[in-house]
Design a protein around this nucleic acid. Sequence first.
DNA 1: ATCGCATCTTGGTTCTACCAAAATGTTCTC
DNA 2: GAGAACATTTTGGTAGAACCAAGATGCGAT
Lengths: 244, 244
Amino acid sequence: MIHLSHSNADESVPAEGRASDVVVDQIQRQILSGTLENDSLLPSERDLMEQFSTSRTVIREAVATLASRGLLEARPRFRPVVRKPGYDTALNSVGSIVQLMLQQEGGIESLFASRVFVERGLVRDAAVSANREDISALKEALARNKNAIADSETFYETDMAFHGVLYGIPRNPIFPAIHIAYCSWLKPHWGQMLRSPERNEVNYASHVAIYTAILERDPDAAEEALATHLSTAWEYVRETFGAS
Amino acid sequence: MIHLSHSNADESVPAEGRASDVVVDQIQRQILSGTLENDSLLPSERDLMEQFSTSRTVIREAVATLASRGLLEARPRFRPVVRKPGYDTALNSVGSIVQLMLQQEGGIESLFASRVFVERGLVRDAAVSANREDISALKEALARNKNAIADSETFYETDMAFHGVLYGIPRNPIFPAIHIAYCSWLKPHWGQMLRSPERNEVNYASHVAIYTAILERDPDAAEEALATHLSTAWEYVRETFGAS
DNA sequence: ATCGCATCTTGGTTCTACCAAAATGTTCTC
DNA sequence: GAGAACATTTTGGTAGAACCAAGATGCGAT
């Protein structure tokens, strides 16, 4: 049973829940409807307190709730800024728990395995249904990747960008969000990997293999290329520092 | 009166964050370490306020934060109960935002498409690497599914259970959590579908097809069977009520 | 025009108080 | 003595005032 449903749009009298809930609901509505423009600053707590004719306690609680949902971005001493929700912010808001999960036994392995699973499916689909634009996007990303072999820092970025193109191919906004999430979650562990032009060369070659397989419309080859690519990269990460 | 006890330069904390953060951190630690037993009740706010020698405000704020992270389950007028985090609670805590996303144009389609994507990969892998136990689990789920054809309610459950077996095959704790999330998120929209023994019969036949393909170690057939299964079911849902 | 200081604003925190509902204890009844 | 009805205590939710410190602002001096 899921209890998180903001179930009722109660305009009627009965059993008031938390007072902050109605404030949350109102502000949420204002954000979604655009009354509160995206990237704009939320009114001061004292203003809101007057606007909703309630105490500051309630306002603060509501703001905290909305912030935890990702609809507001509240840095400690600053005015909260309005963030219209997207799939990325949704996944972002789980970040804190995910970080906990990752510290547990096998956490990183599980997450990485899920990523491999997803990308295997992505490259299969890409091999089947990538159109001209997708292909050229991959080609461009590949070119940038090649040019960055000497510079490990930008190579890392172009590496992610290349994989990011794959996430864009399904034309489903959820996938790019997942990609961003994977990158941000794995970065702390992945980023410690020793990088070198030699390693970059190897990874670039893997990308080429994936690209080629997609180009040749060979799902199995594409999947295979990606699987070996990621697993070897993962092995390299593992041996860089003992499994935590 | 200890006002500024740990206000600044306390320990390794670089910037003077919120006071509630240290409380959040402490309680979180206690939950993870088991000092606060799972399913037990959190001490009263006034106790905590004494324990951490701080005001009730920050305690409440900390509790709210932990609740939003899913480490506490806080019903309006009751004592919060401790919930040791799992992948399921992690996904659960995004539920509220996801519900918002789903109300936007194409939200449900996107989510459902992602589910199809995932399950296509699952059945492929199942066809390749399912072991005896997996097969027998599928067989059992299938049998229960068949027995429930007459009763649409339990058929729905056994239907989900069958798909759930697929999510268990990778032996990756993330996947069952994803399954639960999909079910709970899609339930409000999916549950409105008109169900009938005839429809159940069709769906059961699809399950058999998937099972058979897995049994025959035919990934392509399995994927195909699942894709058609879900897409026809989806079409049926769509025509039941116009796309929202 | 720019820098620097005084001031205002605003978020973070504490405190006190009150209310209502939950939890607990007590008594009364059968 | 068990269970129901009632009284009391706990406890979470809300209000409101006050204070502090850091950001934001404005103004005057250079």
